[in-house]
C-alpha cells in the first residue's frame, strides 16, 4: 500500500486513477448484483414474495376456495363442487346473530378504546417530559407486550365473583351498583366474568395499547407552533382541540381502530374464557373447523372479517391512516 507516504506527497503521486478490481468470489458477486439494481431488488424481494405471497396468500386463497364447497349433511364429508349454499347458511338467524354480535362488540370496543386512549396518548405526547415520558412509554408498552393469556388470566382473577372487584365494590358500599349493572338485561349476567360486559371490558383492556400508540404518534407529529398559531388566531383551547388537534389526530385513531376492530373480530379466546356462552365469529370458526368438522362453513365465517377488514383498510388508506402506523 502506498498510502503510508505523507500527505504532502499527494500532488504528483503516481497512484493509478482507476484501481484494479479486487479478488474474492463473494465481493465480486455482491458488486455485480449492486450494479444491476433490478437484480438487486429482485433478490431482496424474492424471499418475502415466496413466503408471504405464495405460502400465506396461497393458504388464504385455498381457504377462500373451500368456502365455496359445501358439506354433505349425511356423510359429513366435504363436497368439492362450487356452491353458494355455505354462504347462505351464514344468513340463518343463529349464524347471522353470531356475526352481528361480533361486529357490535368490535365496534363498541373500538369506540371505548378510542375514548380511553385519547387522554393517555394526549398527555404522553404533549405534557409528559423526562422521567414521566419513560413511565408512560413503559406503562403502555408493558401491557402491550405482556402475554396475552396472562392478561386474560389477570382479568379472570379481577372479575371473578369472589375476586377483587366484588370486594372493592363491597368495601365502598357500592355492591348495589354492581348488582344493578349485572341486572341489566343482555349485557349483565350472573357475575361480570360470565357477562357481555365482562367480555367487553377485557377486550377493551387487551387492545387499548394498540389504540394508544398510533394516536400518540400522530399527536406527536402535530407541531406545537400549530396550536400556538391557532391560539394566536383567536381559537379558545376548546376550539383549538376540536378544530386543530382532533382532525390531525384522526388518522392515528383510524390506524388504531384497524387493530382494535380486527383483533376483536377474530378473537375466540376471550369470549370463551370470560363471557356468556354465546358464540363470536372466532369461536364459530374454531368449533366449525374443529369439533363440527365443517371446514366450508368455517371458511365462509372467516370471509366475513376479511371482507369487513378489507373495506375498513380501504377506507383507512384513503384517510391516510397508514402513515400513522
Amino acid at each position: 500500500m502506498t498510502q503510508a507516504a505523507p500527505l504532502s506527497a499527494t500532488a504528483r503521486d503516481p497512484a493509478p486513477a482507476i484501481f484494479a478490481p479486487r479478488g474474492g468470489l463473494l465481493p465480486r458477486l455482491v458488486d455485480w448484483i449492486l450494479r444491476h439494481p433490478r437484480v438487486f431488488v429482485f433478490l431482496m424481494v424474492l424471499p418475502i414474495t415466496l413466503w408471504l405471497g405464495l405460502v400465506y396468500v396461497g393458504s388464504l386463497i385455498a381457504l377462500l376456495i373451500q368456502s365455496f364447497f359445501s358439506i354433505d349433511e349425511f356423510s359429513g364429508l366435504v363436497v368439492r363442487e362450487f356452491t353458494l349454499k355455505t354462504y347462505g347458511e351464514l344468513l340463518r338467524p343463529y349464524n347471522f346473530d353470531i356475526i352481528l354480535r361480533t361486529v357490535l362488540m368490535a365496534a363498541s370496543v373500538t369506540v371505548a378504546s378510542a375514548i380511553l386512549a385519547f387522554p393517555i396518548a394526549y398527555f404522553a405526547a404533549r405534557y409528559a417530559r423526562g422521567r414521566w415520558k419513560a413511565v408512560f412509554y413503559l406503562g403502555i408498552m408493558l401491557p402491550l407486550w405482556s402475554s396475552y393469556l396472562v392478561k386474560v388470566y389477570a382479568w379472570k382473577l379481577v372479575l371473578a365473583k369472589e375476586g377483587i372487584l366484588t370486594w372493592l365494590f363491597a368495601k365502598l358500599h357500592l355492591t348495589w351498583l354492581l348488582e344493578a349493572v349485572l341486572a341489566v338485561p343482555v349485557i349483565g349476567g350472573n357475575s361480570l366474568s360470565v357477562s357481555y360486559l365482562g367480555t367487553f371490558i377485557v377486550f377493551t383492556y387487551i387492545w387499548l395499547p394498540y389504540m394508544i400508540l398510533p394516536v400518540q404518534a400522530s399527536l406527536e407529529r402535530v407541531p406545537a407552533t400549530l396550536t400556538e398559531a391557532a391560539a394566536d388566531l383567536g381559537a379558545t383551547p376548546r376550539q383549538n382541540f376540536r378544530l386543530v388537534i382532533l382532525p390531525l389526530a384522526l388518522p392515528g385513531v383510524v390506524a388504531g381502530s384497524i387493530f382494535t376492530f380486527s383483533l376483536t373480530l377474530g378473537d375466540y379466546i376471550i369470549p370463551q374464557i370470560i363471557g356468556s356462552s354465546r358464540l363470536f365469529i372466532g369461536q364459530a370458526v374454531y368449533t366449525q373447523q374443529g369439533t363440527a368438522g365443517n371446514i366450508p362453513l368455517a371458511a365462509a365465517f372467516t370471509v366475513v372479517p376479511i371482507v369487513i377488514m378489507g373495506i375498513y383498510l380501504w377506507a383507512a388508506r384513503r384517510m391516510g391512516a397508514f402513515d400513522a402506523l
Partner: peptide, 28 residues
C-alpha cells in the same frame, strides 16, 4: 413495481385476525 403491494403484504398477517392466518395455514 409492486413496492406498495409488498408493504401491504407484510402488514396483512397482523391486519387480518390471527384466526384467519391460523385456519388457512391449517387447511393448507
Amino acid at each position: 413495481f409492486g413496492r406498495e403491494t409488498i408493504s401491504l403484504l407484510v402488514i396483512l398477517p397482523i391486519a387480518l385476525p390471527g384466526i384467519i392466518t391460523g385456519i388457512s395455514l391449517r387447511s393448507a
